[in-house]
């Protein structure tokens, strides 16, 4: 929205349900965007729990946080942590000692406006739920990535969040739609075949928004988060390739969506054209 960087984008990573892989995805997406050469910052909105800095492997470098900036106790530049692997990637960690009430709408807007001046992509890692933290994470977003597992309660919560995105965000209040896409995570082709998980078609049929990508269930994801490395910066895996192609699409490339499985390497699932 600022003059020099008119094309900076605020993208919220949200889901409604907890434990579906929001923070992992926020870390992977922001690292992949930075790898593609974009100046990227990822903000942790999960005040009080503070997981993003661990996923990004910078928990020991946190001095000031998002809440300090909002409350004017620190400058934004003091709180931003530059990633050691990618110098165009920054992390804005959150506070572990405060709660979500410390977030204010004006404070969030001020920080985002300031970040828009310096960054191409601002990734907001939303907390689970639909309360204050999640609401403020999505409120100023230009786009949304809905992280969903192929499982009914996750899909229903995502549907609920899509409803909120279309009613309770600055764009929606302006009468503009917010572009939302689904990132299907923890997808297990074998379990889908056995009917234990929902199929991609079923999920998209309910959510009625375009698919951004399918990330297979993978040991690599758990390994990477325990190491504090975004999965796309760790050794190659089906999950890291899935995140990279999802991010390429997020960045405007037109790519087919492949389902790759960790268990049967080389198995190419059904191809999905991108819904528009």
């Amino acid at each position: 929205m600022k003059e020099e960087r008119g094309n900076s984008k605020v993208i919220v990573i949200t889901s409604g349900k907890g434990g579906v892989g929001k923070t992992t995805s926020a870390g992977a997406i922001s690292a992949a965007l930075a790898k593609r050469g974009h100046k990227t910052v990822v903000i942790d909105f999960d005040v009080g729990l503070r997981n993003l800095d661990m996923i990004m492997g910078c928990e020991r470098r946190v001095v000031f946080d998002f809440i300090n900036v909002i409350q004017g106790d620190a400058k934004l530049k003091q709180a931003l942590i530059r990633d050691k692997r990618l110098d165009n990637l920054s992390i804005l960690p959150t506070s572990q000692t405060r709660d979500k009430d410390a977030l204010t709408q004006e404070g969030v807007k001020k920080v985002l406006d300031e970040l828009r001046e310096d960054f191409d992509y601002i990734i907001c890692d939303s907390p689970a739920g639909i309360e204050r933290g999640a609401h403020l994470a999505m409120y100023y977003a230009d786009e949304a990535v809905i992280v969903t597992n192929p499982e009914v309660s996750s899909v229903r919560d995502s549907d609920r969040v899509l409803g909120l995105l279309n009613s309770k965000t600055a764009k929606a209040e302006n009468g503009e739609g917010i572009k939302a896409q689904v990132l299907l995570t923890r997808y297990d082709a074998t379990r889908v075949e056995n009917g234990e998980m929902m199929t991609v078609e079923d999920v998209l049929d309910i959510l009625a928004v375009p698919l951004l990508g399918i990330v297979p269930e993978s040991q690599a994801v758990l390994r990477a988060s325990n190491l504090g490395v975004p999965v796309v910066l760790d050794e190659p895996s089906a999950a890291s390739r899935a995140y990279e192609s999802a991010v390429a699409r997020l960045d405007g490339e037109e790519l087919e969506i492949k389902i790759e499985s960790e268990r049967k390497p080389g198995f190419i699932g059904r191809l999905f054209g991108r819904a528009t």
Binding site: R156, D159, R160, L162, G163, N166, S167, I206, A208
Partner: peptide
Amino acid sequence: RPVRSGQTVMADRGDLIVIGPVSSG
């Protein structure tokens, strides 16, 4: 547009026409 889980749409004095899916909930 889709009516999503948790949303309530009310036509207090007439018909309600939805062009799109109506989610569970």
